[in-house]
């Protein structure tokens, strides 16, 4: 295995009396695609929010490139090179597609805010460069025709792509994808699989992939971690994990219980 880019060690998160994540650990190696799976309510989303810094854990530490980031708020983690997408799409809905991308690059801009306010040439040139890069990325995602459109004018599938393009605009070393296949049609899921692989292969981004759709996980992941009721119950290569009786029990078991209760 390569050197780790992200390490979560013994993470525990409680909401009141409920333990959402219980002593969970996981590691993402450089250049790896690691899957995080589990049935509904298993604590995946909580774990993602803990990784990205929206929630703070009660116990445990996060290391990013070897540095302790446990107490850093999300914008500081983003600056260190962590990007994320959201399960329920999140975009700046009153802004254009290009401006959405541009905002993800603000933290990389070197000219001062004052230079930007006074319209100094250094700031203007920097912004032009960022806009050019945003256009390039949009072309890469086949979205170049939508650059000036408001994001709300795009379809769900296109908005999903804008979200991923936005993540890439921040020049991340780790990209946390939170259920990127949610709400996509089967052909679009195929496109997504290819795209995520290219992100890793062409940009060298490491990826933590939270996903429901098993096909995506099996096709993409080098390594899979399974959560159930906030506890890590299995990890390993995708094909092995999917056959693990404990994992099958967790998935089918809850499904059966849910039906019985319903």
């Amino acid at each position: 295995m390569t050197a780790p880019i992200l390490e979560a060690r013994g993470i525990t998160k409680r909401f009141g009396g409920v333990v959402a994540v219980n002593d969970a650990s996981l590691t993402v190696g450089k250049g790896q695609i690691v899957g995080l799976i589990g049935p509904n309510g298993s604590g995946k989303s909580t774990m993602v929010n803990l990784v990205s810094g929206e929630l703070m854990p009660n116990e445990g530490t996060f290391l990013f490139n070897g540095t302790d980031i446990t107490s850093l708020p999300s914008h500081r983690r983003a600056r260190l090179g962590m990007a994320r997408s959201f399960q329920l799409l999140r975009l700046f809905h009153s802004l254009s597609v290009e401006d959405n991308l541009l905002l993800a690059n603000h933290m990389r801009m070197k000219a001062s805010i004052a230079a930007s306010i006074f319209g100094r040439s250094s700031a203007r040139e920097e912004e032009q460069r960022a806009r050019a890069r945003a256009r390039e990325l949009l072309a890469w995602f086949d979205l170049q025709d939508f650059a000036d459109r408001p994001v709300s004018a795009l379809s769900i599938g296109q908005q999903r792509m804008v979200e991923i393009a936005r993540g890439m605009m921040s020049e991340p070393s780790l990209f946390v994808l939170d259920e990127p296949a949610a709400g996509l049609s089967p052909p679009n899921v195929d496109k997504l699989i290819q795209l995520v692989r290219r992100l890793r292969d062409e940009f060298g981004v490491s990826i933590l992939l939270v996903e429901h759709v098993m096909r995506v996980v099996r096709d993409l992941c080098d390594h899979v971690v399974v959560l159930d009721s906030g506890v890590k119950i299995a990890e390993g290569a995708p094909d092995a994990v999917v056959k693990d009786p404990v994992v099958i029990e967790a998935y089918i078991g809850t499904g059966w219980k849910r039906r019985a209760q319903g």
Binding site: F15, G16, A20, S45, T46, N49, L55
Partner: peptide, 10 residues
């Protein structure tokens, strides 16, 4: 509030 319990949600 003075008497409420802190609630935080995922």
């Amino acid at each position: 509030g003075l008497f409420g319990k802190a609630v935080e949600r995922s």
